[in-house]
Amino acid sequence: MLIHLLGPVAISQGGAPPQPLRSARERHLLALLAWTPNTYMSDGQVIEEMWEEDRLPARPRDTLYTHASRLRRLLRPNGPGGGYDAECCLVRRDGGYVLAVDPDVIDLHRARRLCAEAHALVRTGQREAALLLFEDALAPAAGTPLADLGSPWAARARWSAERDLIAARLGHARLALELGRHAEAVPVLSRLADRHPLDEGIAEMLMRALCLSGRPAEALTCFHTLRKALVDALGQGPAGPVAELYEQLLRLPGSSPPRTPGTPRSSLHPPSRSSAATATGPGKSGDRSGRHSGAVRGTPVPPPTERTSP
């Protein structure tokens, strides 16, 4: 049996496609308990997370007991709900509930374990094996975590899971770059750049992957997409490593920045450090918070090499 949280909340068995639970409240209860497996949650905690205060049922504990009973029947081996197996059991304990389960049965926790093992392999120099673990961890994470839940708790949990997934995808992309698999990194980094258009670290990695894949013109376009997004949102263009990489790309034979109709040529180049400092005031370097992914900042990526003809 597998419990799926890295998409719509669902259960699957024996390699069959995930089957969503029919009841939204039972999906919510399963997700809530599976998020912290083998951990006690009181009735009051569960009720607080499952229902907003102005939407509480008339008898919340009775309603919770009903949903828990239905979920328990579904999870019980050979139960009347067509249950699954003994790997997972919803246990009633001291005025609350525990989902007793091997964490590897839950896709989120299995992915976190595999990512931790991948990072350990990287530290010992086993990069090929680490890359495979990252791929295994990310395989079930094609959608949005808890995609069919809309509560405040689900929003907080989704943010946490997506942060972990971004770090895992960046770790995978970084390893692919270090191992010379530049083309493999491009699709992952392109999707991340689309979802995080202000992140200079992601853009820098994507530019390197494109350039080292023989696509320097697309790398330049990536920089200008980033620059436009930053200027529109923050009034200031890129600086630091991504701007330095852009200047390196411009020095490659035959490289020239892309232009759009009506764009002055001078605006195609990033401001110098002195002009950026002037724009933010004396003695200030500008607030660049939120513009670098924590998983990217300070992480070395492969140096650019001489361009070969695409």
Rank of each mutant, 00 (worst) to 15 (best):
A155P: 00
A157C: 14
A161H: 09
R163E: 13
I166F: 05
I166S: 06
A167P: 07
A168T: 03
L170I: 14
G171D: 14
G171C: 01
H172L: 15
H172T: 10
A173L: 11
L175I: 14
A176E: 11
A176Y: 00
L177T: 00
A183I: 02
E184N: 02
A185E: 05
V186F: 00
V186E: 09
V188I: 15
L189S: 06
L189Q: 07
L192R: 13
A193L: 02
A193M: 11
D194W: 09
D194P: 03
R195Q: 13
R195H: 11
G201C: 01
E204W: 04
E204Q: 13
M205I: 04
L210W: 03
L210G: 04
G214N: 09
G214I: 00
G214Q: 03
R215S: 10
R215Y: 01
R215K: 15
A217F: 06
A219Y: 00
T221S: 10
T221E: 13
T221M: 08
F223C: 02
F223T: 04
F223P: 01
H224T: 09
H224Q: 10
R227K: 14
L230C: 01
V231Q: 10
V231P: 04
A233W: 07
A233T: 10
G235R: 02
G235Y: 06
P238A: 07
P238M: 10
A239Q: 13
P241K: 07
A243G: 09
E244P: 03
E244M: 10
